[in-house]
Every structure is written in structure tokens, then in C-alpha cells.
């Protein structure tokens, strides 16, 4: 498959009054045409800042992309001028956000908010844009789209608003859709509907997706590959099945252990990851996960491990790289004992 997006060594900092926040620290990954990449990590792990950096939507000041390349369709998005970047945004790369309650403009109708991108990027006139907008609303499953298009966001429920956001994102047939925790603000049944909807649309339109979430279980049937982020770094990257079956980074293992499972016979207690993520202003020496890690050795506190190949398409940034199911069991036992 052709390479669509190649992020290399991306580094984003926020220059605040309290100091420099090291939000994204040398992140590299790629997305192929039509592929779905999941990015997993807890709050503050830099996953949102990473994709906002790709879109060049980091509020600046205080934010600044200090290093790296974002090669999209053969061009480095960090080098083109603002005018060209606007041509990419909403057109080649679309983005949908976490909270559909606040991400739609409350004083504009749905029509106004969908058609503006169509008129801007595809040069449609108002009639064409309206017709296309109705089509899009039908596509994302909004009933009575012809009437609903003239409504305002507050007249929609949360799930319906996220559908509207998706319709907005898909308006110009983007090659890449970035979904920044699009289901986090929704309740579970609606979550499943939105995931199914995006999967269906992906297969119809053939776009690539970057799906950001803190919920590893959500990605199981959705993503082709997953990268796990911690403290602004990629700590593990692998095809989805490998992440679940054969995680090699202790943080990934910890995340998997904290997911409740319905397929296990005995009801076991969940094993949480103890401690807190590091302060990104006072960035730690060594591996940022080391203080919370049950496998940490001396070296982990001195040197930050690089991403290393541990299998075909599978990389992990860990000096120890624990292996196998017995490790999971050991981890669980250790956590529950303490």
C-alpha cells in the first residue's frame, strides 16, 4: 500500500510561564492509504498534540513545533505556507473532535457548518453544497436530513451531533480522517454505533483513519495497527493483533491488564497501573515509564530506550521487553499482591 502520511521525529513544545512543556518528544509513525491507525495513551500522553501538530493547529504561542517532518502526499506539511496548509485542512485531511457538544458552533445552522467547507474547497455553489450536505447527513444516518439540516446544534442529541461532525469531516472526501477521541463524550451504546458508522464509511470511501483513544479495547475491531504513546513518546507500535496477543512494552501490558474482560471464567480484579505519569515540564532522565514499571532495571533510570524492532512491523521502546503470557500473569499477581 502507498504511504499516505509519514511523521518523522516530531517534537512539540509549549512555552508556558511555569516552564517548557515537552508535549511531543520525537514521535515517528506512518499511515498507509486506506489504513486505520489507532493511537492509544492516557490523558497528557501527547496524542492529541501530535495530531494537532500534523494539522498545524497548535495554539501558538505558547505551542511550537520545534522539530520533525510531516510528509503527507509527498509534501512536508511543516514547510508549506499557511495558504497551502488551509487547502489541506478540511479537504485532504479532516478532523473530528472529542466533544460534539462544544465542537459545533452553537449559533450557526448545521447547513452553514457543513456547506462552508464544500464551497471553500470544492468550489460548489450554495445549491450544490446544500444538496451534498443533505446527502452527507443521510450517509451518517441522520433521519429526516432535509429538515434537520436547517436546525441548530442544540436541537441534536450528543450522538447525532457526533454524526454531524463526521458528516462535516467527510464533506470533501478527505484521504485522511483524524478522529480525536470521537466517542469519549458519548455513552457506550452510542459509542458502538459511531464506531460501526466510521468503519462502514471507511470501507465505502476508502480513506485512511487515525483514531485516537485512551480505550485500548475500542480499537480491537477497528484499527489495523496501533501505536501506544506515553509521556509524548511512542513506546510501542504493532499490528493490532500483536498488541493484544504479544505486548512487549510494560506500559502496554499494564493497559491491557486494566481492561475488564468478559471472556474470562473467573471474575478477577483489575490490575491498575500504579503511580502517575511524569511531569512534562521537568522531563525525567531515562525511560519516562521507569518509575511506574515493575520490570525496570537500573539502566531504565539512566538511558531512554529507543524504539527497537521486536518482530515484523512490531517495535517497542524498552530495555527489558518482557515476553509472553506468563509475564502478564506475573504482572497481575504482583499488582494484586501489593
Amino acid at each position: 500500500m502507498a504511504r499516505l502520511l509519514d511523521v518523522r521525529n516530531l517534537e512539540t513544545r509549549f512555552y508556558t510561564q511555569d516552564g517548557v512543556v515537552h508535549a511531543v518528544n520525537g514521535v515517528s509513525f506512518h499511515v498507509d492509504e486506506g489504513e486505520t491507525l489507532g493511537i492509544v495513551g492516557e490523558s497528557g500522553s501527547g496524542k492529541s498534540v501530535t495530531v494537532l501538530s500534523i494539522m498545524r493547529l497548535i495554539p501558538s504561542p505558547p505551542g511550537k513545533i520545534t522539530n520533525g517532518e510531516v510528509i503527507f502526499e509527498g509534501r512536508d506539511l511543516l514547510k508549506i505556507d499557511e495558504e497551502e496548509m488551509r487547502e489541506v485542512r478540511g479537504n485532504r485531511i479532516a478532523m473530528i473532535f472529542q466533544d460534539p457538544m462544544t465542537s459545533l458552533n452553537p449559533v450557526l445552522t448545521i447547513e452553514q457548518q457543513i456547506t462552508e467547507a464544500l464551497e471553500l474547497h470544492l468550489g460548489m455553489n450554495h445549491q450544490q453544497a446544500r444538496r451534498r450536505a443533505i446527502e452527507l447527513l443521510k450517509m451518517v444516518g441522520i433521519p429526516a436530513a432535509e429538515q434537520r439540516i436547517d436546525n441548530y446544534p442544540h436541537q441534536f442529541s450528543g450522538g447525532m451531533r457526533q454524526r454531524v461532525m463526521i458528516a462535516m469531516g467527510l464533506a470533501c472526501n478527505p484521504r485522511l480522517l483524524i478522529a480525536d477521541e470521537p466517542t469519549t463524550a458519548l455513552d457506550v451504546t452510542i459509542q458502538a454505533q459511531i464506531v460501526e458508522l466510521v468503519k462502514r464509511l471507511r470501507d465505502e470511501i476508502g480513506m485512511a483513519i487515525i483514531w485516537i483513544t485512551h480505550d485500548l479495547s475500542l480499537l480491537a475491531g477497528l484499527a489495523d495497527r496501533i501505536i501506544v504513546m506515553y509521556a509524548g513518546q511512542v513506546v510501542e507500535s504493532a499490528p493490532t493483533a500483536d498488541i493484544y496477543r504479544n505486548p512487549r512494552h510494560p506500559y502496554t501490558i499494564g493497559l491491557l491488564q486494566s481492561i475488564p474482560r468478559l471472556d474470562e471464567k473467573r471474575r478477577e480484579r483489575l490490575a491498575p497501573i500504579e503511580g502517575l505519569p511524569p511531569d512534562l515540564i521537568d522531563y525525567p532522565q531515562g525511560c519516562p515509564f521507569a518509575p511506574r514499571c515493575r520490570f525496570a532495571v537500573e539502566r531504565c533510570f539512566e538511558e531512554d530506550p529507543p524504539l527497537e524492532k521486536v518482530g515484523p512491523e512490531h517495535e517497542a521502546a524498552c530495555w527489558v521487553k518482557p515476553v509472553g503470557q506468563e509475564v502478564l500473569a506475573a504482572w497481575r499477581a504482583a499488582v494484586l499482591e501489593s
Binding site: M85, R86, V88, A94, T102, S103, N105, E116, A117
Partner: peptide, 21 residues
């Protein structure tokens, strides 16, 4: 506000974002 970020993500010009959104 979030919806201004949404407007930016659509590729609108700064002027349309301010006056329109």
C-alpha cells in the same frame, strides 16, 4: 472555544473564522 478549532480544521481563512464563527 472548541468550535473555533473545528472551523480552523475545516481550512477556513482567519477572516471567515472571526467574522463567520
Amino acid at each position: 472555544e472548541d468550535y473555533i478549532r473545528t472551523a480552523r480544521a475545516k481550512g477556513l481563512r482567519e477572516r471567515s473564522i472571526i467574522l463567520g464563527h
